[in-house]
């Protein structure tokens, strides 16, 4: 074979070599890139939705907490739980009433804040997340590509350590840091909640939860307390009963010795309290 004659077969073998090298270099370089295009955007979007839903939950929860707090206040004559001593239950009346003579001056907004905080904390601790982790099979069709071994195999995470649980737990452990009055509203601030973004390394989104609720109108307590003071202290039980029922229809009064047990249905709940007709009642501040 002369020199010219070997060019064609040599070219054929050289082509094989060049193509193999090209294949190796391209595959090796591309394999190092492990991004799933669009994954970061979608996880960010999903987490943003989750944060919006969490904030919405908090806004609804504070309204429910406010309603429940008002009921509890009414049940304790306007005071937060365990502020005053209570009557003992008996066979006739299983309800317990606060003893007004054992209570400090009534600061309704302060008492409301205490009860609201307690109630809201319950709602925060029962929170559940609806976050759905991204389905890589649906979103990227990973099953087919796994066949060609182009991407690493996906390891399924235990439900306990899922992002859904992680986000729910992050919300549940947040604390109420501040409750302050601003005009006719109460502003509630919680500790910042840091949410790790799904399938990223170290990226986070922070929610600084803040919510507000209307300060209720406590005028009815002023009326009730004034009415007790004017119509019941050092007065006959019958006079007291008639006057209170006239002023607050549907009221129930029961006397045992010098103690009067009272239930008054109002818009803020059924105000329940007991007072001694011979002792002064605490003022409303």
């Amino acid at each position: 074979m002369n020199k010219k004659a070997i060019f064609l077969p040599m070219f054929a073998f050289l082509t094989v070599f060049i193509l193999l090298s090209l294949l190796y270099v391209i595959h090796d370089t591309e394999a190092k890139k492990s991004d799933l295009i669009g994954l970061n955007a979608i996880t960010l979007l999903k987490l943003n939705d989750e944060l919006e839903k969490n904030q919405f939950y908090l806004d609804l929860a504070v309204n429910q907490a406010s309603k429940n707090a008002l009921k509890k206040l009414a049940d304790n004559g306007g005071y937060s739980s365990s502020r005053c001593e209570k009557t003992k239950t008996d066979l006739i009346d299983q309800d317990q009433y606060i003893l007004l003579e054992t209570c400090p001056a009534l600061k309704l907004e302060e008492e409301f804040k205490i009860e609201l905080k307690e109630e809201l904390k319950i709602y925060i601790t029962i929170f559940e997340s609806t976050y759905q982790e991204i389905n890589l099979e649906e979103s990227f069709g990973l099953k087919t590509t796994e066949f060609f071994k182009l991407t690493p195999k996906i390891v399924k995470i235990n439900e306990e350590y899922s992002y859904k649980n992680l986000y729910a737990e992050a919300f549940r452990i947040s604390n109420i840091t501040n409750i302050e009055k601003q005009e006719d509203k109460i502003i509630i601030t919680l500790t910042s909640i840091v949410y790790p973004i799904e399938k990223t390394s170290g990226s986070t989104l922070t929610l600084k939860p803040k919510t507000k609720t209307q300060i209720p109108d406590f005028k009815v307590y002023d009326t009730v307390y004034s009415s007790i003071m004017n119509n019941c202290l050092k007065q006959e039980f019958q006079t007291c009963k008639e006057k209170l029922i006239q002023e607050f229809p549907g009221s129930e009064l029961v006397q045992s010795q010098n103690l009067i047990k009272l239930k008054i249905p109002t818009d803020l709940g059924i105000i329940k309290l007991a007072f001694n007709t011979n002792k002064p009642i605490p003022p409303i501040v």
Binding site: L23, A41, K46, G141, T151
Partner: peptide, 30 residues
């Protein structure tokens, strides 16, 4: 040779970026 390599390059697509692009229908918010 050309046939085999054309399979590698165009059918299997080894020259394509193996990074997978998200399906547009997955790109929805709540």
């Amino acid at each position: 040779i050309l046939f085999i390599f054309s399979i590698f390059f165009f059918v299997i697509g080894v020259t394509k970026n193996p990074n997978l692009v998200i399906n547009p229908e997955s790109f929805s918010d709540e």
